[in-house]
Amino acid sequence: MNSAALIIAEVVPLVTPETTFDAPANVVFAVQAVVMIFAALRVVTTKNVVHAALWLVVVLGGVGLNYILLQAEFVAVTQFLVYLGAVIVLFLFGVMLTRAPLGVSDDLDNNQKKIGIGVGVALLAVLSYALIETFGRSELTFAAYEGVAGPNTNGRTQAVSDAIFGQYLIPFEMLSLLLLAALIGAIVLARRD
């Protein structure tokens, strides 16, 4: 389990004295990181389709938790609402409608496991090398949020909304168009005729 080893390698230096150690946040991070990685691995290895969807819930929830740690509350809430609320339900419907085997099934993977592991490890190696080379032990400073928000204000959310409806209005409108197109496309595809 090379990934777990890497995470430990990363978490351990946090306790070195010269860094400002934000204990609760780091503990939360460590716990949820381990849980998330385990859950993500279960999503891609479990032999039960429904279990995969449920493990996915754990991963997505963990991602939401990450957002909170990173002080992006609005995105976190959206993550919970959209992913946990909507996407997972969609997946369960997909499982149901395609009559996927509900119990344990040995036939969920193809014969490319070795290739998959090889590619995955290679990618991870490259990525982690690049990240460690580039960012090393740089601290998370939240520099961008300074001045936007105090501890108990809604400043960041307001800043996000200002950005969406100001600077990024056209991409936003395009997005609504895309959603419309996806809606129509899904109906056209799934309709029986």
């Binding site: 290679a122 090398y129 690049a130 080379e133």
Partner: peptide, 13 residues
């Protein structure tokens, strides 16, 4: 993805 990994490796390293 293998190609991506190799290419990225070339770029990074």
């Amino acid at each position: 993805f293998a190609a991506v990994a190799i290419l990225a490796g070339v770029f990074v390293v």
